[in-house]
C-alpha cells in the first residue's frame, strides 16, 4: 500500500497547477523511492518529468509499485478543498480503484477526507538521455516568467542564444522585435536573485513561447529556474524542489529555415 504524508498541501496543489495545462490525465508512479510522473502534451512537443522523493514526505511508505491514473482536473477539484498549510496524506491500496486524500489543519481540529476515482491510463515512458548540456543558465524563476510573458506579446517564438557575452532572448513578430540580454549576476545576500551562466560552447535555439509560458506556471515552486541547452536537442527547464525533488520540462526546438 501507499501512504505518503506531506507537511504542506501547497506543494501538491502547486505541482498540479504547474502541469495541468500541459497534461490532462497521467499516471502518478509510486515506488519506494517516491512519487514520479512523466507525460507528454497532446501534440508531443513538450514533456513533463516530475519526481517527489520519499524524503519530501514524512512518513512515506510504498510497499510495491503502484500507478495512480489520475485526471488532473478532478484532482485539482479535490485539492481546492485543502488549505495551503494543511497536512496532506495520500493513501492507496496495492491495486487501487481510488486514491484517498486526507487534509488536516495545523491545529488538528478539522480533518477532511476525499476519495478520488482512478482511471486506467496506458502511458508510454520515454527514455531521457543523460546530456552534457552546452549551456546552463540559472536565474530567478520570476524573471524567466516575465521574459516569457513579455516576448509572448510580440511573437510566437523565442530564440535563446548563449555565448560568451551572456544569454539573450530574442523574438520577432508583426509589430516589431524584442531582445532581452542577461549577464551573470551574483548577490551574496539574496542568492535567489542570482543569474549564473555556464557555457562550454555557444548555443542558439528557437522555441515556441506558448509552451514556455505553460512551464512558467511552476514558478511558485522554486525561486530559481535552470535552463539547459545544447544545439539540436530539447530544452530542459528545471524547477528544483526541497529534498532533491524536481519538476522538469522538456521542449523540442523549432529547427530549419
Amino acid at each position: 500500500m501507499l501512504e505518503a504524508r506531506l507537511e504542506q498541501a501547497a506543494l501538491l496543489k502547486k505541482v498540479v497547477d504547474a502541469i495541468k495545462e500541459l497534461v490532462q490525465e497521467c499516471n502518478f508512479d509510486c515506488n519506494d523511492s517516491g512519487i514520479g510522473l512523466q507525460a507528454m502534451d497532446n501534440s508531443h512537443v513538450a514533456l513533463v518529468s516530475m519526481f517527489l522523493k520519499s524524503e519530501s514526505f514524512s512518513p512515506f511508505r510504498c510497499d510495491r509499485n503502484i500507478a495512480l491514473g489520475i485526471n488532473l482536473n478532478a484532482l485539482q477539484k479535490v485539492l481546492r478543498a485543502a488549505q495551503n498549510e494543511d497536512i496532506l496524506t495520500l493513501k492507496a491500496e496495492d491495486a487501487p480503484d481510488v486514491v484517498n486524500l486526507v487534509f488536516e489543519n495545523a491545529t488538528a481540529d478539522r480533518i477532511s477526507e476525499y476519495d478520488l476515482k482512478l482511471m486506467d491510463i496506458d502511458q508510454e515512458h520515454l527514455g531521457i538521455p543523460d546530456t552534457d548540456y552546452a549551456a546552463q543558465i540559472s536565474m530567478p524563476s520570476s524573471e524567466f516568467q516575465r521574459i516569457t510573458r513579455d516576448l509572448s506579446a510580440i511573437s510566437e517564438s523565442v530564440t535563446i542564444e548563449c555565448n560568451k557575452e551572456g544569454v539573450s532572448f530574442a523574438c520577432e513578430g508583426d509589430i516589431g522585435k524584442g531582445n532581452i540580454k542577461l549577464r551573470q549576476y551574483t548577490n551574496v545576500d539574496k542568492p535567489a536573485e542570482n543569474v549564473e551562466v555556464n557555457m562550454t560552447e555557444p548555443v542558439a535555439l528557437t522555441f515556441a513561447l506558448k509552451y514556455l509560458g505553460n512551464f512558467c506556471k511552476a514558478s511558485g515552486l522554486s525561486e530559481q529556474v535552470r535552463l539547459c541547452l545544447s544545439n539540436e536537442v530539447p530544452l530542459m527547464v528545471e524547477y528544483a524542489l526541497a529534498n532533491n525533488s524536481y519538476i522538469r520540462f522538456y521542449l523540442a526546438p523549432k529547427i530549419g529555415d
Binding site: 508531443h44 514533456l47 520515454l126 517564438s157 523540442a252 523549432k254
Partner: peptide, 14 residues
C-alpha cells in the same frame, strides 16, 4: 520558417 519538432524525435520510447 522553422518547423516545430516532436519530442519523440529526440527521446525514444522505452
Amino acid at each position: 520558417d522553422r518547423s516545430q519538432k516532436s519530442i519523440l524525435g529526440f527521446f525514444q520510447k522505452k
